[in-house]
Design a protein around this nucleic acid. Sequence first.
DNA 1: TTGCTCCTCACGTCACGTGAGGTGGC
DNA 2: TTGCTCCTCACGTCACGTGAGGTGGC
Lengths: 148, 148
Amino acid sequence: VSATAVDRLLRIGEVAERSGVTPRTIRYYEEIGLLASGPTREKGKHRLYDEADVERVRELTRLRDLLGVTLDELKQLVAAEDARAVLRRRFHETESQSERLRLVDEALPHVDAQLELVRKRIAELRKLERELEGRRTQLQKRRRELRG
Amino acid sequence: VSATAVDRLLRIGEVAERSGVTPRTIRYYEEIGLLASGPTREKGKHRLYDEADVERVRELTRLRDLLGVTLDELKQLVAAEDARAVLRRRFHETESQSERLRLVDEALPHVDAQLELVRKRIAELRKLERELEGRRTQLQKRRRELRG
DNA sequence: TTGCTCCTCACGTCACGTGAGGTGGC
DNA sequence: TTGCTCCTCACGTCACGTGAGGTGGC
């Protein structure tokens, strides 16, 4: 992993397009605290983002769509991503082994919480899949009977 | 399958409770045409339902939650269930083989449309599951390194 | 007859969509 | 300097939630 590419700064329209949402969604997520607002932006001036923000928006909408959670629930869930971000930034800054261990230990339960939700959803969808396959089989059987 | 149990008539509160929604949701679904309104209900009188309606509401909310579709999209999707209902009612009423065959042939593509959506969702969720498992493994590896 | 559930407005909320009128920066 | 994109209100919409005031039926 190299850190050679200095991130080009992006405007809201480009972030929106690359993450599959509208600028309005990005502003709304900032408003409710799902996305950090650039700390020193003068009122009326353009918002500026980087690659990490594009990734963040993609993660958020992906979890929102696939897990069907409210934005409030999403806020809790992405504490995992927040912890990961802290991990990445702080991990190399700190010398302390125990501090590093603490950061890792904090991130794990958040990932586990997401995994549990994902697996529950998969199980529900697989059940629905089996039922639909059953209906399909029934219909095809009837069709054969009617033709034969 | 016996048809011995004559369906007891249910009021909106019982239908709501048994299908896991509120009465408001049921009235709203009637309003937008997702649920049939009892054809001859005098204004101000109570709505009456049966077991089939409970099943219908369960199917609707299940597809809504698991597939994340709008109620407009849901209306298109459950053309499958509508076709199935027609099938059940009409199948035994009609003598015509070709009419029966037509009903079966109509139901199949609707079931297939639902199956396709369900499988697409499962694939997306499985991909997310794999990514989360990867993160988990990484975190556990780091933890072992910090401890060792 | 008394409760309990139902009825119909109608306004509130969440997660944005969609202009209106104005300013910023390559 | 001219476009294009951005800015901030602010009202609209979808899918209901939540009372307010009144009637129905065991």
